[in-house]
């Protein structure tokens, strides 16, 4: 089934005619969502697969509820976020993402956004930055993950987290400040920071 050149919205229409096309949606988003769930929860790989399956089943059953005013990507991320967080809360654990696959450019990008000197050792940065990310509040982590790791625009983050765009901007600003504080507290010295 060749569906690479089709848009998400076209695929959704085709699924109503032939459910086999749903596998194209799964192929397209499985990897992205798996990575996203891993970043916002501390679930095991097995559990992540279960959550992923639950997400896609929800997407399939709610396809008629897809709001075409949103991008399909925002809609599926919204379902993924709500499902993953809900399962995580049921297990009464504080979500702590692994962040293990943060690419170097993502780290540099965050550093740039938090006013920290860019010319630093990436491995050193990775250690402290990821530790800092684990320490900040979940609401701040949620927006930072979407903004810097998933590279979503403010409007998309607003649609995924179902928060007003203005609140998203405020949350990101506060998140960056908290991250900076944590970053320094975690061992990245003021000297390094001001260097």
């Amino acid at each position: 089934m060749n569906c690479e050149k089709m848009t998400d919205e076209e695929l959704v229409e085709l699924v109503f005619e032939n459910k086999a096309y749903f596998s194209c949606i799964v192929f397209r988003y499985e990897k992205k969502l798996k990575r996203y769930i891993r970043r916002i929860t501390n679930l095991s790989e097995e559990d992540i697969d279960d959550v992923l399956q639950e997400i896609f089943i929800k997407v399939y059953t709610n396809l008629h509820g897809f709001d075409t005013d949103l991008t399909f990507s925002s809609w599926i991320y919204r379902i993924a976020y709500n499902t993953a967080i809900s399962i995580h809360r049921k297990r009464e654990a504080r979500p702590e993402g692994h962040m293990i696959d943060a690419p170097d450019e993502v780290l540099i990008n965050i550093v740039g956004e938090t006013d920290v000197e860019k010319e630093v050792d990436v491995q050193y940065l990775r250690k402290h930055l990821l530790e800092a990310m684990e320490s900040i509040s979940q609401k701040y982590k949620d927006v930072l993950v979407l903004r810097f790791f998933e590279e979503k625009e403010y409007q998309e983050i607003s649609d995924i987290l179902q928060k007003p765009p203005g609140s998203v901007a405020t949350l990101i600003n506060r998140a960056k400040k908290q991250l900076k504080k944590e970053f320094i507290r975690q061992g990245y010295s003021q000297y390094d920071y001001e260097r």
Partner: peptide, 15 residues
Amino acid sequence: ADSIMEKIERESIKP
């Protein structure tokens, strides 16, 4: 993808 499609088929899940 296969396991999801199988589940949809097996449990007759419909939108």
